[in-house]
């Protein structure tokens, strides 16, 4: 037995154990830090370990190309499902954002005219930007809408209700030749009424005919509804003056307007049911 304790093996074992136990004890005493022996070795092996890890990742990526097609197809199907879900959410988000913008405009309008009554509606048919633009809304007489109610988006005049059903109504926009609005120019105070021709309507423009040749209306002027009109409240924005043309055949002038409402992107509107 004594010879056993004198062997080189036992002595080596005892020395190694003493060093390792001392390192572990020091680690315990320093509350969680690694043993000094381990730390010293990690200084050498950590770079090697990083190298091996990157080699392993490259190896794994390379052999990923040879994975079975069934596994890849399953992954693809799962990703496509996830993509469809995110697309739906994006559509919902866009709709919600548009509604929010609309309601912000409505809030501003309501705060300025607290006695006015509005009904929100969405376009379900027709093309607002089409020739002589008219469209159908998803609200009708059941929602309190009646013929000759003005249709707005924010403070911009869009058109007028011309026919109602129980749950829908037809609107003719200000681009329609049958729709005429009594307006005034805010800077000069000059009155007029809106009109359009097929050629102008195709370009999405209106006109205010029969102005005096000496009119002070100029390009950039803001055109709003006048209080003289019985169908529209005063102050709704109709459009801005693009140019003033002098008629060759008469002593009058015609102002060409660009409507304030964007008919191409129109989706949701407000119908003024009471003012």
């Amino acid at each position: 037995m004594k010879r056993f304790f004198k062997t080189a093996a036992f002595k080596s074992f005892a020395v190694l154990m003493a060093v390792l136990v001392a390192g572990s004890a020091l680690s315990l005493a320093t509350r969680g830090k690694a043993s000094p022996v381990v730390s010293a070795l990690s200084w050498v092996t950590s770079p090697l370990q990083s190298l091996c890890a990157s080699a392993a990742n490259s190896f794994r990526d390379f052999f990923g190309y040879f994975r079975s097609s069934a596994a890849l197809q399953a992954q693809l199907a799962a990703k496509e499902e996830e993509l469809a879900l995110y697309r739906d959410r994006l559509v919902d988000y866009d709709k919600t954002r548009q509604k929010l913008e609309l309601y912000e405009q409505f809030l501003e309008l309501k705060e300025e005219n607290p006695k006015d009554q509005f009904q929100e509606a969405s376009i379900i048919g027709g093309e607002p930007a089409g020739q002589f633009g008219s469209f159908t809304l998803n609200r009708g007489s059941a929602a309190g809408i009646s013929v000759n109610d003005p249709v707005l988006v924010g403070k911009n005049l869009v058109g007028i209700v011309t026919a109602t059903e129980l749950s829908s109504c037809t609107v003719k926009t200000i681009l329609h030749p049958e729709v005429h609005v009594i307006v005034y120019e805010t800077a000069t105070g000059e009155f007029g009424w809106t009109n359009t021709t097929p050629a102008l309507a195709q370009q999405g423009l209106l006109s205010i005919p029969e102005l005096l040749r000496s009119t002070a209306i100029a390009g950039g002027g803001l055109i709003c509804t006048s209080s003289e009109s019985k169908y529209y409240p005063a102050g709704l924005i109709v459009g801005t003056v693009q140019e003033v043309r002098m008629d060759d055949q008469s002593l009058s002038a015609t102002a060409i307007l660009k409507p304030a409402a964007h008919f191409e992107s129109l989706r949701d509107v407000f119908v003024l049911t009471e003012f």
Binding site: M17, G23, S24, L28, A34, S35, V38, S42
Partner: peptide, 8 residues
């Protein structure tokens, strides 16, 4: 737990 238990 890098305190040297595996080495021991």
């Amino acid at each position: 737990d890098p305190r040297g238990w595996h080495a021991l």
